[in-house]
Design a protein around this nucleic acid. Structure first.
Lengths: 185, 185
DNA sequence: GTCTATAGTTTGATAGAC
DNA sequence: GTCTATCAAACTATAGAC
C-alpha cells in the first residue's frame, strides 16, 4: 500500500535529519514520487505526523501487552519502566513525536492519542492487580521519574547508558517510597 | 542600548507565539525597526538565540547565588530543587531555550553555556560543603528527577501545580535514597 | 545605524492535464 | 493516482543609498 510506503519514507527522513526537518518533498523523493502526489494519500503534512504518532503509540501499546510482569510489585514496576525507557531511547525522532511537543502547530488527533492513554491505564491496572495501591500522585511521580531519565539520556548522553544504568536504582528508590516489600532482605 | 531593546522584543515575541515562531521581522516590528537593521546588532538569528540563552542561564546563576541554603542537607536539596523548578516553570519559552533542544540547527556557544555549568557545579560544591558526599551518579539521578517533574508540569498541566506539589515528596524520596538523616523523627 | 530593495531558498498546498 | 506547473507565502541574509 502506498500509505505504508510513504510513512516508512517519512520515518527514514525523520531519523536521518530530525523530525523537524521533515518535508513533503523529502518524503516524496525517497518514495519515488512528487510532493503533490502525497495529497492523494494524506490530507496534509500534519496528517502524516498524526499517522506516525498513532502508529508509534500503537506499537508501544502492543509491546506492553506482550510483556509479562513479575509477581513481585517491585520487580513489576522495574519491568514497566525498562519497557518504556528502552522504547523511548530506541529512536529519537519517535521519542520527539511521542513525548515532546516539538512540532509547532501540530496537535495529535484523539484517535492517535488513544493508544497512549490505553497503554498507561492498562499498566496501572496490571500493577493494581498485583495488590499495589497506587494513587494518581504515585503515578505522576512515576512518570516524571522515568520520563526524566529518558530525557537526560537523550540530552546528555545519546546512545550511551549513563542514565539507563540509573533506572534500577531509581525504581528501587521509588518502590521504597511506596513502602513496597523488599525481596532480598 | 539597542541590543537590549531587541532582546526584550525577542522575549516578548517568544512568550506570545512560542520560541520556534521567532522571526527577525517579528522582532523588528515590535522594536520599531526593519528586519535587516537587526544585523547591525547581531550577526545572525542564531546569535540572538545565543544571547537569550546566555542571559537566561546568567540570570539563573545569579538567582542560585542569592539563595541561602539551610544547614540541613535534606532541606538544602529541597531548596535547590525548588529554585530550579520555579525558574523553569516561570517561562515556557525560556525553559525550551535552556533545557530543550527545540531549535533546529542551533547549538549554544561555549560562552553562553558556561553559566549553566557554573550553576550546577557551584550547587554541588555547596551541598558537599554541608557534609553530603554526592557521586556523579547521585547528581545524574537528581537532575533527572527534578527535570522530569518540570517537563511533566509543562506538558500535562501548564500553569498548574500538579507536579509542583510532588516536589517535596520527590526530594524526600531522593534524600532517603541517599540515606540522609531525617529532621523530624 | 537604519533604510529600501531584493536576492535566494524553501515551504505547504492547489489546479488541471493525463 | 500521478504528474507538471505554479501559487502564495515565509524566511534569512546581503547590497548599497542615505
Amino acid at each position: 500500500m502506498a500509505r505504508r510506503k510513504i510513512l516508512e519514507a517519512a520515518w527514514a527522513v525523520a531519523r536521518e535529519q530530525g523530525l523537524a526537518a521533515l518535508t513533503l518533498r523529502g518524503i516524496a523523493d525517497r518514495v519515488g514520487m512528487k510532493a503533490p502526489s502525497l495529497y492523494s494519500h494524506f490530507e496534509s503534512k500534519h496528517a502524516i505526523y498524526d499517522a506516525m504518532l498513532g502508529a508509534s503509540w500503537t506499537e508501544f501499546l502492543k509491546r506492553t501487552r506482550t510483556v509479562t510482569l513479575p509477581d513481585s510489585p517491585r520487580a513489576a514496576l522495574s519491568t514497566i519502566a525498562r519497557t518504556f525507557f528502552d522504547f523511548a531511547t530506541e529512536d529519537l525522532a519517535r521519542h520527539q513525536l511521542m513525548n515532546l511537543r516539538t512540532i509547532p502547530g501540530f496537535t495529535p488527533s484523539e484517535a492517535s492519542y488513544a493508544p497512549a492513554v490505553a497503554a498507561l491505564s492498562e499498566m496501572v491496572e496490571r500493577v493494581r492487580a498485583l495488590g499495589v495501591e497506587v494513587s494518581d500522585a504515585d503515578i505522576d511521580l512515576y512518570t516524571a521519574l522515568v520520563g526524566g531519565l529518558v530525557d537526560q539520556q537523550w540530552a546528555n548522553d545519546p546512545g550511551g547508558t549513563r542514565w539507563a544504568r540509573l533506572l534500577d536504582r531509581a525504581m528501587d528508590m521509588y518502590a521504597d517510597n511506596l513502602d513496597l516489600p523488599r525481596e532480598d532482605p
